[in-house]
Computed example of a mutant assay.
Amino acid sequence: MRYKLLSLSLAVLTTSTFCGCKKDTAAPPCYAGKVVGLTCFDGMLINVDPAYRIGVRATRNDSAHSVLGTNVISVVNTMDYGRLATVGLTLHFNAVNDPNRQHSGLQCFAADGVQGGVPRLVLGNVSTMGCQEGPR
């Protein structure tokens, strides 16, 4: 009887050891991209790493129609990031499309915007060093 109990205990221990923990597949991916512009209406513009197709090709609405990038997103919550909203910085972040946090039609100078239907996303977990693993 003792051996059966010991064998059963070992079987349970072995099974739970090999099964391990499951990763949280609901966690948003960590994106990387370079800040390519700042505008009144669109906020911070980021050209995201081409491995993540979340943006679009965009040009600045100026006389030269300057190309901003091929995978550009607009950051709805730019004001949350102060000094990180600097052209040339590479940022790591999570992003979601939150219709409740979209702008309601701010009017800016005509040359301030971008062309290309840039997706307007809400960023979280923004860093210059890489995304954090879970809440801290």
Rank of each mutant, 00 (worst) to 15 (best):
K34M: 08
C131F: 13
G117R: 03
T25G: 06
Y52V: 04
R53H: 08
L5G: 09
D42T: 03
T17K: 12
M1I: 08
Q115I: 14
A64W: 04
L84W: 01
G33S: 07
M129F: 09
L121K: 03
R57F: 13
G117D: 02
T14R: 04
R53E: 08
A110E: 09
L13Q: 05
L91N: 05
P99M: 05
L121I: 06
A26W: 06
K34F: 04
Y81K: 03
Q115M: 14
G130V: 12
G113T: 14
V36H: 04
N77K: 03
L45S: 02
V126K: 11
G88S: 10
A110N: 08
G117N: 12
A111E: 09
A32C: 13
L106V: 15
H103T: 12
C108W: 12
L89N: 01
T14I: 10
R120K: 14
P135R: 03
T128C: 04
S9P: 07
D80A: 08
L45T: 00
G113V: 15
G130T: 08
F41Q: 03
V56Y: 01
N77L: 08
K22Q: 03
N61M: 04
A27K: 11
D49C: 07
P28T: 10
C40E: 11
G134W: 09
C40A: 11
F18S: 02
G130S: 08
L10K: 12
R83H: 05
C131E: 04
V56I: 03
G113C: 13
V56L: 00
R2G: 02
R136V: 12
T14C: 10
T78K: 05
A11C: 15
T70K: 02
L8N: 02
Q132Y: 15
K22F: 08
N71H: 11
T128V: 11
G113N: 14
D80N: 10
T25N: 03
K34E: 02
R83K: 08
E133M: 13
L8C: 09
L89Q: 03
A58K: 01
Y52H: 11
L5H: 12
T59E: 04
G82V: 02
L121S: 00
D98Q: 13
F93W: 10
A85Y: 07
T15I: 15
R2Q: 07
V67N: 00
N94Y: 08
Y3Q: 13
L89A: 00
N71V: 11
T17C: 06
Y81W: 09
F93P: 00
F93Y: 12
D42K: 04
S66K: 09
L89C: 03
